[in-house]
């Protein structure tokens, strides 16, 4: 129990976080509204929702500069599609209008160019009357991201785990330079092996996420370039090891290179993205909103932190196993 409690903790955290990452539904949202222009007169609007339960009794209105227009007829096709008829009056004050369906807001839904001094407010936007849905525990539903928001719980922990493993590696390398021990060298290289695996997983999960949200598997983004170069550096570390036959010399030279490699990892993953953040498409960089802006009620964090802890523990566990099997291989070879 004393030795494997953290392994059970890793399994428990990963199970909970991964199941929740797939299980938790997205909160309802309006994803598509057509047409995008309205003019005074009768307008037929098609609304597409996601995870919604449209009913003919739902409250639908257009909001224009604080003034509301109610729907004159609502026809629900199914739970996520509705046809709405509106009588748009003359004299809307602002050119952009928002659409509200069942308490869900689609900001800037319509554009109209025939403007006036305002309309008679029919008061159907009265907030108290909106039948608020209580969807329970949900993830934020944002355009572009949509369901891919779940990837946050897989993509980001991979990088955290890689950084921890490379940190373990450089720690053993520095220690090994001091005491010339081959044990330290074995630990350093085992950590790099597992760290590279997590780097590969981070790149893969990132590539699929990029395809879904940015439109391409690979883009010219500072963080992507940094990750790619970090991978190259650690692959070069393995090549360096492979080219030195003498074990003690290999331990010393690769430890020196490892210190360099870790310095560049820190530079590439922490300093450079902040220096020219303009080049980044990543959330939280270059003026993009970060996940903390989406995650106002901390629902992502509740899953994200256990996922990070779980993956880091799993990575450490894998490193431990790899190191022990390498030690056994050395012992059997002797």
């Amino acid at each position: 129990m004393k030795h494997w409690w953290w392994k059970s903790l890793a399994v428990a955290l990963l199970l909970v976080a991964s199941i929740a990452a797939f299980w938790v539904p997205l909160s309802p949202a309006l994803v598509h509204v057509s047409p995008s222009r309205i003019a005074p007169g009768e307008v037929v609007i098609h609304v597409t929702g996601y995870n919604t339960h449209f009913t003919p009794e739902m409250r639908v209105f257009i909001e224009n500069d604080g003034q509301q227009v109610c729907a004159s007829m609502i026809e629900t096709i199914d739970a996520t599609h509705a046809r709405i008829v509106m009588n748009v009056p003359q004299g809307l004050r602002a050119s952009m209008s928002d659409l509200s369906v069942q308490g869900l807001l689609y900001p800037g839904a319509f554009y109209s160019d025939a403007l006036g001094d305002g309309i008679e407010n029919d008061g159907c936007g009265n907030v108290n009357k909106i039948e608020l849905q209580t969807p329970g525990f949900t993830f934020p539903n944002r355009s572009i991201l949509y369901e891919s928001i779940r990837n946050l719980h897989f993509h980001v922990p991979m990088w955290f785990t890689m950084i921890v493993l490379m940190g373990i590696s450089v720690w053993h390398s520095i220690k090994g330079l001091g005491d010339n021990s081959l044990d330290r060298d074995r630990k350093a290289v085992s950590a790099v092996h597992v760290g590279l695996l997590f780097c590969g997983l981070g790149l893969t999960t990132g590539a699929f996420w990029a395809r879904a949200t940015w439109g391409a598997f690979w883009t010219n983004d500072v963080k992507l370039n940094g990750a790619a170069v970090t991978a190259l550096i650690y692959l070069a570390y393995l090549v360096l090891r492979g080219s030195i036959p003498d074990a003690h010399k290999r331990a010393r030279l690769s430890a020196i290179y490892n210190v360099f490699a870790f310095m560049l990892l820190v530079l590439f993953l922490f300093v450079v993205p902040r220096l020219n953040a303009i080049d980044s498409l990543h959330p939280g960089n270059g003026g993009n909103s970060g996940f903390n802006d989406l995650d106002l009620d901390n629902r992502l964090r509740v899953i994200f932190y256990p996922a990070v802890a779980g993956w880091i523990l799993l990575g450490t566990w894998m490193y431990d196993l790899r190191e022990r099997s390498a030690r056994l291989r050395e012992l059997t070879e002797q």
Binding site: V229, A236, L240, S243, I244, L253, Y257
Partner: peptide, 27 residues
């Protein structure tokens, strides 16, 4: 300079130097 020292100590001059040096020189 440091990379060429590592490569020279590893006893594998230019080839290793290019592999080790390119990613490190990139930033």
């Amino acid at each position: 300079t440091l990379i060429s020292a590592i490569a020279a100590r590893a006893g594998n001059g230019l080839g290793l130097m290019a592999i080790l040096g390119f990613p490190l020189v990139l930033p």
